[in-house]
Amino acid sequence: MNVLEMRDVTREHGAGQSLVHALRGVSLAVRPGEFVAVMGPSGSGKSTLLTLAGGLDAPTSGTVVVEGVDVGGLRRAGLAALRRRSIGYVFQDLNLIPSLTAVENVMLPRELDGVRARRARREALSALADLGLADLAGRFPEDMSGGQQQRVAIARALAGDRRLVLADEPTGALDSRTGEDVMRLLRSRCTEGAACLMVTHESRHAAWADRVVFLRDGEIIDSAGRSVPESLLEGTA
C-alpha cells in the first residue's frame, strides 16, 4: 500500500479574472521506503503540493490518501490525529514554541497524541541525538542558532514512528555539511520504511531521493530516477 497517494489533484485560488491554478491534475504515489524529491521553479506549485499531501489544505478536486485513509473524508479531529500520528512536517516556517526547550518542542506532538511523557521524552532525546543535538536538549529556541533550530524542527518531524515525512527546503539554514547529514538521516528513515516527500531547489539534495519529480505551472512534467526495487516492496504491500 502506498503511504501517500494523490489522484488527479487540482488546487485553485481565487475566481474569475484572478483565478490561479496552483496545481492541475497532479497524480503522485509514494511507497513505503521511497524518498521522492520535488523540484521546479518558484510558483510551480511545489509548496501547494506539500501542504495538500499533509492535509493542511484541501484540494479543489481530486483525492489525497494517506496510509489508506482518504484525507478529504475525515472530520477535523480525525484529520488532526492523522497529522500528528502519521505525518512529520519540516516546513520553512519552523514554528518552534519559544517557551519550550528543544526536547519539549520535540515531545509536544507526541504527548498531544497520548504518548506518555517518559516515552515521549525518550523518543525526543533519541531524535535530537540523531541530529547531533544531544547536548542542546535543554536549551530554548532563542539560545540556539538558526541551523540548530532547524535541526530541532527536523527532530520533531522524525520523533516517534511517523510513516510520512514532508519536508519543504529542510536544509535552508544549514551549512553544506549539516545539510548533507540531514539528507543522510532522511535517507535512512526511508530505508527503515518511512516515505518521504521533499521540496527542494537544490539538485544536490534532490539527488539523495529515489525519484525526482519536476513540476512546472502546476503540472508534473517529468521525473528522474529509478523506482524502489521489488525486493524492498515485498512484505510491505
Partner: peptide, 23 residues
C-alpha cells in the same frame, strides 16, 4: 524548454548515481 528538461533529468540521474556512491 524541452531541450532544457531532457538535459536536466539526465544530469539529475547522474547526480543521483554519484550521490549513491557517496552515500
Amino acid at each position: 524548454r524541452t531541450v532544457v528538461q531532457t538535459q536536466r533529468a539526465a544530469t539529475l540521474r547522474s547526480l543521483q548515481d554519484l550521490t549513491r556512491l557517496k552515500a
